[in-house]
Design a protein around this nucleic acid. Structure first.
Lengths: 142, 142
DNA sequence: ATAATTGCAAATTTTTTGCAGGTTC
DNA sequence: GAACCTGCAAAAAATTTGCAATTAT
C-alpha cells in the first residue's frame, strides 16, 4: 500500500483512496480493462464513481504510472508501468500474460512452440515515438 | 478495383460498392481509423451510412480482409491484411508507418537510431494466440 | 489554506441493433 | 429468387464535462 503512495507522490499526484484502490486492483489483476477496474474497486469502495475511474486512468497514464495495453478486438487493458516485456494475448479468453523480453526473439518463439504453452496465430510489434517529420516540426517551433 | 473484388469474393463476401470503397480508402491511406474511413468514403459515396462502415469493418476483420491496429491513446486503425511487419507509431501525429519485419531486431533498432528516422520512446510487442488453458478447454469440448 | 480531487448528473461520442427495402450472385 | 447487404432511426454503451462539495498536503 505504501508503495503505491510513494509512486503517486513521485508522479505529482495526490494519494487518494480512490487512486490507491485503482492501483491495487490493477496490480492484483496484472492487466485489466476500465469496466473491470470499476467493478472490482466498487466492491471495496462502493461510493466511487465511474467518472473518477476515467479521470484517474487518464492522468495516471499521462504521468506514466499506468500503461495502456491496446488489444485487437477488445477494450484496452491497463497495467502498472514496468520494464518492457512481451504480451501474450489469448484471443479466446482475453487474458494477457507477460513474458520477459530477452534479447533473442528466436528463444521466445522456441519457448512458445514447446508443448502447448501458447498457440501463436498473429503478432503485432508496435514501436512508439516521434516520426522524422514531427521531430523537425518541433525544432522549428522552438 | 478488380483486386478488391477478388479479395472479397475469396472471403465469401459480396462485392458491394460500399465495401470496395472502404477497401480503396484503407489501401490508399495505409492505416486509418473508422471515423476517417467514413469521412473519406462519403466523399465518393455520399449516401453511405456509418452503420454500414461499422458492420463492414467488423465482418471484414472477421474474414481476415482487414486487420485492426490498436494504438495506445488513440482509436484503432485498420489496414489491409498483409505479411507481418512492424508498426512505427508517431505519438505526435498518430501516423503509422510499416517497417519490413526482418529476422534481426537489432538491425531494426540500428536503422531507427540512424540520423533522425524515428525517435523511439516506447515499444509494445503483442503476440496473439490461444493460451494453454483455452487450448485444453477446446480439446475437452470436442 | 489552497490547490487538487471527487461524485453527480447531464452531455457527448461511439458503437450496435432491428428492420424494410434494395442488391448481388 | 434467395441470401445477403444497405440505410435509417432508435437504442445502448462508453467516455467526457462542469460544478459544488470534499480532501490531501
Amino acid at each position: 500500500m505504501t508503495g503505491y503512495m510513494a509512486l503517486l507522490k513521485e508522479s505529482g499526484l495526490k494519494a487518494t483512496f480512490q487512486r490507491l484502490h485503482i492501483l491495487e486492483v490493477v496490480d492484483k489483476y496484472g492487466h485489466i480493462a476500465i469496466e473491470d477496474i470499476y467493478d472490482k474497486v466498487i466492491k471495496i469502495h462502493p461510493s466511487l464513481s465511474v467518472a473518477t475511474i476515467y479521470k484517474n486512468i487518464i492522468i495516471m497514464v499521462e504521468k506514466g504510472v499506468l500503461v495502456e495495453v491496446p488489444i485487437m478486438g477488445r477494450k484496452s487493458k491497463y497495467e502498472l508501468s514496468k520494464l518492457d516485456h512481451i504480451h501474450l494475448v489469448c484471443t479466446q479468453c482475453g487474458e494477457v500474460e507477460d513474458l520477459a523480453c530477452t534479447k533473442d526473439i528466436n528463444n521466445i518463439l522456441d519457448f512458445l512452440t514447446q508443448e502447448e504453452k501458447f498457440k501463436l496465430t498473429k503478432q503485432q510489434i508496435n514501436l512508439y515515438g516521434t516520426c522524422s517529420q514531427c521531430q523537425s516540426q518541433k525544432i522549428l517551433q522552438k
